[in-house]
Amino acid sequence: MADVLLEVKHVKKYFHTPKGLLHAVDDVSFSIERGKTLGVVGESGCGKSTTGRVVLRLLEPTEGSILMEGQDIAGLSESQMRSKRREMQMIFQDPLASLDPRKTVGQIIEEPLRIHNIISGAKERQNRVLELMETVGLARRYYSTYPHELDGGRRQRIGIARALSMNPKFIVCDEPVSALDVSIQAQILNLLEDLQKQMGLTYMFITHDLSVVHHFSDNIAVMYLGRIIEMAPSDELFAHPTHPYTQALLSAIPVPSLENRRERIILKGEITSPINLPKACRFASRCLYATERCFGEEPELTEIAPGHQVACFRQDKADAKTV
Protein backbone atom coordinates (compact mmCIF):
# COMPACT_ATOMS: atom_id res chain seq x y z
CA MET A 1 0.00 0.00 0.00
CA ALA A 2 1.02 3.54 -0.56
CA ASP A 3 2.77 5.13 2.38
CA VAL A 4 0.88 8.36 2.86
CA LEU A 5 2.76 11.03 4.81
CA LEU A 6 0.33 13.90 4.61
CA GLU A 7 -3.37 13.80 4.05
CA VAL A 8 -5.48 16.91 3.74
CA LYS A 9 -9.23 16.48 4.03
CA HIS A 10 -11.87 19.04 3.15
CA VAL A 11 -9.76 21.99 4.18
CA LYS A 12 -11.37 25.41 3.91
CA LYS A 13 -9.92 28.82 4.59
CA TYR A 14 -12.22 31.83 4.49
CA PHE A 15 -11.24 35.44 5.04
CA HIS A 16 -13.62 38.18 6.08
CA THR A 17 -13.26 41.14 3.75
CA PRO A 18 -15.28 44.35 3.48
CA LYS A 19 -16.80 42.99 0.26
CA GLY A 20 -17.87 39.70 1.80
CA LEU A 21 -16.54 36.27 2.64
CA LEU A 22 -13.50 35.37 0.56
CA HIS A 23 -13.24 31.66 -0.15
CA ALA A 24 -9.45 31.50 -0.50
CA VAL A 25 -9.38 27.73 -0.12
CA ASP A 26 -12.68 25.98 -0.58
CA ASP A 27 -12.92 22.32 0.30
CA VAL A 28 -9.53 21.04 -0.81
CA SER A 29 -8.48 17.43 -0.27
CA PHE A 30 -5.30 15.66 -1.33
CA SER A 31 -2.65 13.34 -0.01
CA ILE A 32 1.08 13.06 -0.56
CA GLU A 33 3.07 9.84 -0.35
CA ARG A 34 6.31 9.75 1.56
CA GLY A 35 9.27 10.80 -0.57
CA LYS A 36 7.07 12.14 -3.37
CA THR A 37 6.31 15.62 -4.64
CA LEU A 38 2.90 17.13 -5.15
CA GLY A 39 2.98 20.13 -7.46
CA VAL A 40 0.27 22.74 -6.95
CA VAL A 41 -0.23 25.09 -9.91
CA GLY A 42 -2.55 27.93 -10.61
CA GLU A 43 -2.59 31.63 -11.34
CA SER A 44 -2.26 34.36 -8.76
CA GLY A 45 -5.22 34.43 -6.45
CA CYS A 46 -6.15 30.78 -6.93
CA GLY A 47 -5.38 29.95 -3.30
CA LYS A 48 -2.27 27.84 -3.81
CA SER A 49 -0.07 29.77 -1.38
CA THR A 50 -2.88 29.93 1.17
CA THR A 51 -3.25 26.15 0.93
CA GLY A 52 0.47 25.74 1.63
CA ARG A 53 0.27 27.99 4.66
CA VAL A 54 -2.84 26.30 6.01
CA VAL A 55 -1.17 22.90 5.71
CA LEU A 56 1.64 24.20 7.94
CA ARG A 57 -0.88 26.04 10.13
CA LEU A 58 0.81 29.35 9.50
CA LEU A 59 -2.80 30.24 8.80
CA GLU A 60 -5.52 28.55 10.81
CA PRO A 61 -7.87 26.44 8.68
CA THR A 62 -11.53 27.46 8.87
CA GLU A 63 -12.55 23.84 8.56
CA GLY A 64 -11.10 20.45 7.74
CA SER A 65 -8.33 18.18 8.94
CA ILE A 66 -4.65 17.90 8.15
CA LEU A 67 -3.27 14.47 8.93
CA MET A 68 0.51 14.23 9.27
CA GLU A 69 1.40 10.55 9.63
CA GLY A 70 -2.15 9.94 10.80
CA GLN A 71 -2.16 12.68 13.45
CA ASP A 72 -4.54 15.58 12.92
CA ILE A 73 -2.41 18.70 13.37
CA ALA A 74 -5.37 21.04 12.91
CA GLY A 75 -6.34 20.21 16.49
CA LEU A 76 -2.93 20.69 18.11
CA SER A 77 -2.34 23.46 20.65
CA GLU A 78 0.10 26.30 19.96
CA SER A 79 2.96 24.68 21.86
CA GLN A 80 2.33 21.19 20.47
CA MET A 81 2.32 22.73 17.02
CA ARG A 82 5.62 24.48 17.70
CA SER A 83 7.38 21.20 18.28
CA LYS A 84 5.57 19.63 15.34
CA ARG A 85 7.14 22.29 13.12
CA ARG A 86 10.41 20.40 13.33
CA GLU A 87 8.90 17.92 10.94
CA MET A 88 7.12 20.36 8.64
CA GLN A 89 9.08 23.17 7.07
CA MET A 90 8.69 25.84 4.46
CA ILE A 91 10.86 27.44 1.76
CA PHE A 92 9.66 30.88 0.74
CA GLN A 93 9.32 32.64 -2.58
CA ASP A 94 11.28 35.80 -1.86
CA PRO A 95 14.58 34.73 -0.37
CA LEU A 96 15.48 38.24 0.77
CA ALA A 97 12.18 39.09 2.42
CA SER A 98 12.06 35.79 4.27
CA LEU A 99 15.44 36.32 5.94
CA ASP A 100 15.85 38.69 8.87
CA PRO A 101 18.03 41.49 7.44
CA ARG A 102 19.81 42.00 10.77
CA LYS A 103 21.01 38.45 11.19
CA THR A 104 24.06 36.86 9.64
CA VAL A 105 23.88 33.67 7.59
CA GLY A 106 25.18 31.67 10.54
CA GLN A 107 22.64 33.12 12.96
CA ILE A 108 19.77 32.45 10.57
CA ILE A 109 20.63 28.80 10.04
CA GLU A 110 21.42 28.30 13.71
CA GLU A 111 18.15 29.71 15.02
CA PRO A 112 15.99 26.60 14.64
CA LEU A 113 18.70 24.51 16.34
CA ARG A 114 18.55 26.85 19.31
CA ILE A 115 14.78 27.15 19.44
CA HIS A 116 14.19 23.42 19.50
CA ASN A 117 17.29 22.77 21.54
CA ILE A 118 18.43 20.22 19.00
CA ILE A 119 22.10 20.79 19.73
CA SER A 120 23.01 22.45 23.02
CA GLY A 121 26.72 23.28 22.76
CA ALA A 122 27.59 26.47 20.89
CA LYS A 123 30.59 24.84 19.24
CA GLU A 124 28.63 21.77 18.16
CA ARG A 125 25.88 23.99 16.85
CA GLN A 126 28.34 25.93 14.77
CA ASN A 127 29.74 22.73 13.30
CA ARG A 128 26.24 21.64 12.38
CA VAL A 129 25.58 25.00 10.70
CA LEU A 130 28.76 24.70 8.64
CA GLU A 131 27.79 21.16 7.73
CA LEU A 132 24.36 22.36 6.58
CA MET A 133 25.94 25.14 4.57
CA GLU A 134 28.07 22.56 2.81
CA THR A 135 25.00 20.42 2.11
CA VAL A 136 23.24 23.25 0.31
CA GLY A 137 26.39 24.43 -1.46
CA LEU A 138 27.19 27.60 0.47
CA ALA A 139 30.88 28.30 0.98
CA ARG A 140 31.95 28.54 4.63
CA ARG A 141 33.24 32.05 4.13
CA TYR A 142 29.64 33.31 4.02
CA TYR A 143 29.09 32.24 7.63
CA SER A 144 29.18 35.79 8.97
CA THR A 145 27.87 37.75 5.99
CA TYR A 146 24.41 39.27 5.83
CA PRO A 147 21.77 38.05 3.35
CA HIS A 148 21.64 41.38 1.50
CA GLU A 149 25.32 40.99 0.61
CA LEU A 150 24.59 37.80 -1.34
CA ASP A 151 22.83 37.11 -4.64
CA GLY A 152 19.38 35.58 -5.02
CA GLY A 153 20.57 32.02 -5.51
CA ARG A 154 22.73 32.01 -2.41
CA ARG A 155 19.96 33.62 -0.38
CA GLN A 156 17.62 30.86 -1.38
CA ARG A 157 20.25 28.34 -0.29
CA ILE A 158 20.22 29.95 3.17
CA GLY A 159 16.45 29.48 3.32
CA ILE A 160 16.85 25.84 2.33
CA ALA A 161 19.58 25.25 4.93
CA ARG A 162 17.37 26.80 7.61
CA ALA A 163 14.50 24.50 6.67
CA LEU A 164 16.79 21.45 6.64
CA SER A 165 18.42 22.18 10.00
CA MET A 166 15.60 20.43 11.88
CA ASN A 167 15.67 17.32 9.69
CA PRO A 168 12.09 17.77 8.54
CA LYS A 169 10.04 15.09 6.82
CA PHE A 170 7.90 17.44 4.82
CA ILE A 171 8.65 20.77 3.15
CA VAL A 172 6.26 23.21 1.51
CA CYS A 173 8.15 25.02 -1.27
CA ASP A 174 6.26 28.21 -2.11
CA GLU A 175 7.49 29.38 -5.51
CA PRO A 176 11.10 28.73 -4.46
CA VAL A 177 12.62 29.60 -7.82
CA SER A 178 10.32 32.19 -9.37
CA ALA A 179 12.41 35.11 -8.11
CA LEU A 180 15.59 33.66 -9.64
CA ASP A 181 17.28 33.82 -13.02
CA VAL A 182 16.95 30.82 -15.31
CA SER A 183 20.48 29.48 -14.82
CA ILE A 184 20.24 29.86 -11.03
CA GLN A 185 16.74 28.37 -11.07
CA ALA A 186 18.13 25.16 -12.49
CA GLN A 187 20.85 25.04 -9.82
CA ILE A 188 18.29 25.33 -7.01
CA LEU A 189 15.88 22.81 -8.57
CA ASN A 190 18.69 20.29 -8.87
CA LEU A 191 19.67 20.92 -5.26
CA LEU A 192 16.09 20.34 -4.07
CA GLU A 193 15.95 17.12 -6.09
CA ASP A 194 19.22 15.85 -4.65
CA LEU A 195 18.11 16.65 -1.11
CA GLN A 196 14.87 14.80 -1.66
CA LYS A 197 16.77 11.70 -2.73
CA GLN A 198 19.36 11.90 0.07
CA MET A 199 17.00 12.65 2.94
CA GLY A 200 13.77 11.08 1.71
CA LEU A 201 11.97 14.42 1.83
CA THR A 202 8.36 14.92 0.83
CA TYR A 203 7.54 18.15 -0.98
CA MET A 204 4.51 20.21 -1.68
CA PHE A 205 5.73 22.36 -4.56
CA ILE A 206 3.69 25.49 -5.19
CA THR A 207 4.33 27.36 -8.43
CA HIS A 208 2.79 29.16 -11.35
CA ASP A 209 5.46 27.87 -13.72
CA LEU A 210 4.05 24.88 -15.54
CA SER A 211 7.25 23.65 -17.14
CA VAL A 212 8.97 23.63 -13.75
CA VAL A 213 6.11 21.81 -12.06
CA HIS A 214 6.03 19.17 -14.78
CA HIS A 215 9.71 18.52 -14.35
CA PHE A 216 9.68 18.53 -10.58
CA SER A 217 6.47 16.83 -9.41
CA ASP A 218 5.18 13.29 -9.28
CA ASN A 219 1.59 14.45 -9.04
CA ILE A 220 0.07 17.77 -9.97
CA ALA A 221 -3.00 19.53 -8.62
CA VAL A 222 -4.38 22.42 -10.67
CA MET A 223 -6.20 25.04 -8.63
CA TYR A 224 -8.72 27.61 -9.73
CA LEU A 225 -10.46 30.06 -7.39
CA GLY A 226 -9.80 28.08 -4.22
CA ARG A 227 -10.59 24.65 -5.63
CA ILE A 228 -8.63 21.78 -7.08
CA ILE A 229 -10.16 21.32 -10.51
CA GLU A 230 -7.86 18.61 -11.79
CA MET A 231 -5.34 16.30 -10.19
CA ALA A 232 -3.25 13.62 -11.87
CA PRO A 233 0.24 12.13 -12.13
CA SER A 234 2.54 14.59 -13.87
CA ASP A 235 2.92 12.87 -17.22
CA GLU A 236 -0.74 11.91 -17.32
CA LEU A 237 -1.81 15.51 -16.77
CA PHE A 238 0.42 16.82 -19.52
CA ALA A 239 -0.55 14.05 -21.91
CA HIS A 240 -4.29 14.16 -21.24
CA PRO A 241 -5.32 17.47 -19.77
CA THR A 242 -9.06 17.16 -19.34
CA HIS A 243 -10.42 20.24 -17.63
CA PRO A 244 -10.83 23.11 -20.10
CA TYR A 245 -8.87 25.35 -17.76
CA THR A 246 -5.95 22.94 -17.58
CA GLN A 247 -6.00 22.68 -21.35
CA ALA A 248 -5.86 26.46 -21.72
CA LEU A 249 -3.15 26.73 -19.09
CA LEU A 250 -0.94 24.14 -20.76
CA SER A 251 -1.44 25.64 -24.18
CA ALA A 252 -0.40 29.05 -22.86
CA ILE A 253 3.13 28.00 -21.89
CA PRO A 254 5.56 29.69 -24.26
CA VAL A 255 7.61 26.75 -25.54
CA PRO A 256 11.31 27.51 -26.02
CA SER A 257 11.55 25.54 -29.22
CA LEU A 258 10.62 26.03 -32.85
CA GLU A 259 9.21 22.56 -33.31
CA ASN A 260 6.11 20.88 -31.93
CA ARG A 261 4.31 24.08 -31.11
CA ARG A 262 0.91 23.70 -29.53
CA GLU A 263 -2.34 25.14 -30.71
CA ARG A 264 -3.05 28.09 -28.45
CA ILE A 265 -6.29 28.27 -26.52
CA ILE A 266 -6.77 31.91 -25.63
CA LEU A 267 -9.04 32.32 -22.63
CA LYS A 268 -11.41 35.22 -22.40
CA GLY A 269 -11.51 37.44 -19.34
CA GLU A 270 -9.51 37.15 -16.18
CA ILE A 271 -9.58 35.35 -12.88
CA THR A 272 -12.03 37.01 -10.50
CA SER A 273 -11.81 36.95 -6.74
CA PRO A 274 -13.63 34.18 -4.89
CA ILE A 275 -16.04 36.42 -2.96
CA ASN A 276 -19.74 35.57 -2.62
CA LEU A 277 -19.57 32.77 -5.15
CA PRO A 278 -22.75 31.61 -6.82
CA LYS A 279 -23.49 27.92 -6.88
CA ALA A 280 -21.91 27.18 -10.22
CA CYS A 281 -18.71 25.94 -11.76
CA ARG A 282 -16.12 28.59 -10.91
CA PHE A 283 -14.64 28.46 -14.37
CA ALA A 284 -17.95 28.60 -16.25
CA SER A 285 -17.79 32.31 -17.15
CA ARG A 286 -14.46 31.85 -18.98
CA CYS A 287 -15.08 28.35 -20.26
CA LEU A 288 -15.37 27.69 -23.98
CA TYR A 289 -17.73 24.75 -23.44
CA ALA A 290 -19.93 26.01 -20.60
CA THR A 291 -23.51 24.75 -20.70
CA GLU A 292 -26.55 25.69 -18.64
CA ARG A 293 -25.72 22.96 -16.17
CA CYS A 294 -22.32 24.56 -15.47
CA PHE A 295 -23.99 27.77 -14.30
CA GLY A 296 -26.42 26.05 -11.98
CA GLU A 297 -24.38 23.31 -10.36
CA GLU A 298 -20.86 22.88 -9.10
CA PRO A 299 -19.00 19.81 -10.40
CA GLU A 300 -17.23 17.50 -7.92
CA LEU A 301 -13.81 15.91 -8.43
CA THR A 302 -14.36 12.49 -10.00
CA GLU A 303 -11.85 9.88 -11.07
CA ILE A 304 -11.70 9.35 -14.82
CA ALA A 305 -8.51 7.28 -14.99
CA PRO A 306 -6.33 5.71 -12.27
CA GLY A 307 -5.17 8.66 -10.13
CA HIS A 308 -6.64 11.21 -12.54
CA GLN A 309 -9.43 13.32 -11.05
CA VAL A 310 -11.34 16.11 -12.74
CA ALA A 311 -14.08 18.48 -11.62
CA CYS A 312 -15.93 19.05 -14.87
CA PHE A 313 -19.25 17.85 -16.30
CA ARG A 314 -17.64 17.53 -19.69
CA GLN A 315 -15.14 14.83 -18.73
CA ASP A 316 -16.64 11.99 -20.75
CA LYS A 317 -16.60 13.96 -23.99
CA ALA A 318 -13.22 15.45 -23.26
CA ASP A 319 -11.14 12.63 -24.73
CA ALA A 320 -12.33 13.46 -28.19
CA LYS A 321 -10.81 16.93 -27.89
CA THR A 322 -7.40 15.94 -26.55
CA VAL A 323 -6.58 13.40 -29.22
Binding site: V182, I184, Q185, A186, L189, N190, E193, H214, F216, F238
Partner: peptide
Protein backbone atom coordinates in the same frame (compact mmCIF):
# COMPACT_ATOMS: atom_id res chain seq x y z
CA UNK B 1 23.51 26.40 -24.74
CA UNK B 2 23.59 26.79 -20.96
CA UNK B 3 20.35 28.77 -20.99
CA UNK B 4 18.62 26.02 -22.94
CA UNK B 5 20.10 23.37 -20.65
CA UNK B 6 18.66 25.15 -17.61
CA UNK B 7 15.10 24.74 -18.87
CA UNK B 8 13.10 21.65 -18.01
CA UNK B 9 12.56 19.28 -20.91
CA UNK B 10 8.84 19.14 -21.61
CA UNK B 11 9.13 15.82 -23.43
CA UNK B 12 11.02 13.95 -20.74
CA UNK B 13 10.42 15.21 -17.25
CA UNK B 14 12.95 12.89 -15.64
CA UNK B 15 15.83 14.42 -17.56
CA UNK B 16 18.09 16.27 -15.16
CA UNK B 17 18.57 20.00 -15.60
CA UNK B 18 22.01 21.14 -16.68
CA UNK B 19 22.48 24.50 -15.00
CA UNK B 20 25.30 26.87 -15.80
CA UNK B 21 27.69 26.70 -12.86
CA UNK B 22 28.56 29.88 -10.96
CA UNK B 23 27.06 33.35 -11.17
CA UNK B 24 26.91 36.41 -13.41
Amino acid sequence: AGLFGSLPNMEDRTQRLKPIPGLM
